[in-house]
């Protein structure tokens, strides 16, 4: 298997930085620029958000970026066109993240095949639960060398975490708290206990912590308990304003990665 996600986690065990952005925001055709700037600034993995009209797992920042992106005319077809030649210039793992319905309307088979053609390494679809994935879509994902990236939360039982671990093969997205995206969080005692509990399970999949990671402090903290962390809302928020986009991106990433 030459999936770039597996390669990344083989080569790098700690302080992996994954960044999420919403495709089509702030402007319809920013997608390639944002990806290339993130790569230039040393990001390890990129999650490209496919905007949806009803993002129930997202907080206000990503709700807003999704709304603007859709108004700008973003769609899955558009996104695939923008990403068509992306592998000529970008080597790091790319993941698509979004909600199930737009993918179903495109057609899961056609969608997965297109991902493979472009060089997408995994999918995060929060409203595609594990049992439906296993029953209906696992074979399609595997045939196209796509990882299903599952989420776990502080409420997820040990039994279920083990089931999730055995059914997936890229990495596990550890939601840091009981929250929609963009929630403010510092690492509480409660979260620390949750992170340590999961670490004690000795799972086969590496883990990234997401939700509430917004600056150097929260990133460093999260990295103590997992292989790295995911930044979403804070980055999307940093794309607001009138400065040139490359400047906004490098300023933001530099203030996250203060340690080498």
């Amino acid at each position: 298997m030459n999936n770039r996600i597996n390669k990344l986690f083989q080569e790098k065990k700690e302080r992996i930085l994954s960044v999420y952005f919403t495709a089509g925001y702030p402007h319809l055709n920013d997608t390639r620029t944002i990806i290339q700037e993130l790569v230039k600034n040393g990001v390890d993995l990129i999650e490209i958000g496919m905007p949806f009209s009803d993002p129930v797992a997202d907080g206000p920042v990503i709700q807003h970026s999704s709304l603007i992106a859709l108004r700008n005319g973003m769609s899955i077809r558009n996104l695939f066109e923008q990403l068509q030649d992306i592998r000529q210039s970008v080597d790091i793992p790319l993941i698509l993240m979004g909600y199930l319905n737009p993918v179903l309307q495109y057609g899961m088979d056609a969608f997965a095949a297109k991902c493979k053609e472009i060089g997408i390494d995994g999918l995060i679809l929060p409203d595609l639960p594990l049992d439906v994935y296993i029953d209906d879509y696992k074979s399609i994902f595997e045939a196209n060398d796509l990882h299903y990236v599952p989420l776990i939360t502080p409420q997820t039982s040990e039994e279920r975490i083990r089931m999730i671990d055995s059914a997936s093969s890229g990495f596990i997205y550890m939601v840091s708290s009981n929250a929609t995206t963009g929630a403010k969080a510092s690492v509480s005692e409660f979260q620390k206990a949750y992170f340590e509990r999961v670490n004690s399970y000795c799972l086969k999949n590496p883990r990234l912590i997401g939700f509430g990671i917004s600056n150097a402090e929260t990133f460093d903290n999260a990295c103590q308990y997992a292989n790295g962390a995911i930044i979403g809302s804070a980055f999307v928020k940093a794309l607001e304003g009138d400065l040139p986009i490359d400047q906004k991106i490098s300023t933001f990433i530099k203030q996250i990665v203060t340690k080498a």
């Binding site: 409203d127 409420q155 997820t156 009981n178």
Partner: peptide
């Protein structure tokens, strides 16, 4: 039940 993991419990 196409629910995000957060609603599973």
């Amino acid at each position: 039940a196409y629910i995000p993991e957060m609603m599973h419990p």
